[in-house]
Amino acid sequence: MNVLDPVKSIMTTKLITVSTGDKLTAVKEIFDNNRIHHVPVVRYKELVGIISKTDFMHFLRGFNRNQEDRFVNEARMRAYNVEDIMTKGIAKLSPDDRINVALEVFLENRFHAVPVVSENGELEGILTTFDIIKAIAATKVTPEEILESKKQH
């Protein structure tokens, strides 16, 4: 991975999204059935917010200890919409922004995901810290580079 490459080279493009009027039961189903931690909120194709798994768990106030807690949480999820708990003022990247710019955003703000939007505000992807880790792990290192690294240390 080259940090000067554009974020579009490593971002996730197959996204699961929700709309502002969706019930939180839909968000719970997404988190329960997919290995993701951030769900972009869109109005048509325009990004309007994001819900993190942490925000969602905070809304639920932790774990379900008994059947009564589960019943109350189910009722709350049916009563509230995505719009009620989504984060609205979010950082965004352009598909052509460099990966090093994304790294700075992650470091400064301690985010774990940043939506990637086109000039007209349409959601094109999301870049997560996991995407960066995958790209680094996939980077091929030659035996010569390993030897050179050992000589320097």
Results as ranks from 00 to 15, higher is better:
17 T>N: 03
17 T>K: 01
17 T>P: 01
18 V>D: 04
18 V>R: 05
19 S>R: 12
21 G>F: 13
21 G>S: 15
22 D>F: 12
23 K>S: 15
24 L>Q: 12
24 L>E: 09
24 L>W: 10
25 T>F: 07
25 T>N: 11
27 V>H: 04
28 K>V: 08
28 K>A: 15
29 E>G: 09
30 I>R: 09
31 F>P: 07
31 F>T: 09
32 D>Y: 09
32 D>P: 03
33 N>W: 08
33 N>A: 11
34 N>P: 07
35 R>H: 14
36 I>D: 06
36 I>S: 05
37 H>F: 02
37 H>K: 06
38 H>T: 02
38 H>C: 00
39 V>E: 01
40 P>W: 00
40 P>V: 00
40 P>L: 00
42 V>D: 04
42 V>Q: 02
43 R>Y: 13
43 R>H: 14
43 R>M: 12
43 R>I: 08
45 K>D: 10
45 K>L: 07
45 K>P: 00
46 E>N: 09
46 E>I: 11
47 L>R: 02
47 L>S: 03
50 I>C: 01
50 I>A: 01
50 I>V: 13
51 I>R: 00
52 S>M: 02
53 K>W: 00
53 K>I: 04
54 T>N: 13
56 F>H: 03
56 F>V: 05
57 M>P: 03
59 F>Q: 05
59 F>A: 03
60 L>D: 10
61 R>A: 11
61 R>P: 02
61 R>N: 12
61 R>F: 05
62 G>A: 10
63 F>R: 12
63 F>M: 11
64 N>W: 04
65 R>C: 04
65 R>P: 01
65 R>W: 10
65 R>H: 08
66 N>E: 11
67 Q>F: 04
67 Q>I: 07
70 R>A: 14
72 V>M: 08
72 V>Q: 09
73 N>H: 03
73 N>Y: 01
73 N>S: 08
74 E>S: 03
76 R>E: 15
76 R>W: 04
77 M>L: 13
77 M>W: 06
77 M>N: 06
77 M>Y: 05
77 M>D: 08
78 R>C: 02
78 R>F: 03
79 A>Q: 07
80 Y>D: 14
81 N>D: 08
83 E>L: 01
83 E>P: 00
84 D>S: 05
84 D>Y: 00
85 I>F: 00
86 M>A: 03
86 M>L: 07
88 K>C: 02
89 G>C: 10
91 A>C: 10
92 K>M: 15
94 S>G: 09
94 S>L: 14
94 S>W: 10
96 D>Q: 09
97 D>C: 12
97 D>I: 11
97 D>Y: 10
97 D>W: 06
99 I>G: 11
100 N>G: 07
101 V>P: 04
103 L>H: 06
103 L>Y: 06
103 L>N: 05
104 E>D: 14
104 E>G: 15
104 E>A: 13
104 E>L: 13
105 V>W: 06
106 F>S: 15
107 L>K: 14
107 L>M: 14
108 E>W: 06
108 E>S: 12
109 N>F: 04
